[in-house]
Amino acid sequence: MVTLVLRNQEYQVRPGMALIDALKKISVLPESVIATRAGEMITEDELLKDGEVIKLVSVISGG
């Protein structure tokens, strides 16, 4: 499985899926996050591999 981490929440998705589909599956808008793999930013067409952890950095701030 692939683990997606957004703040303190973890989500599991199937490997082989493109990041954009994984985000849709966990109901996260691509516009609201930057995805990183091992500290490197990746684009939404990237295919996710089994066992990896994708960190999602929330971009929305303000008050």
Binding site: L29, P30, E31, S32, I60, G62, G63
Partner: peptide, 15 residues
């Protein structure tokens, strides 16, 4: 906050 709520709405539109 209201501003974050508006940003989320606009991001749905952007998507």
């Amino acid at each position: 906050s209201t501003s974050i709520y508006y940003k989320e709405i606009l991001n749905r539109l952007e998507n």
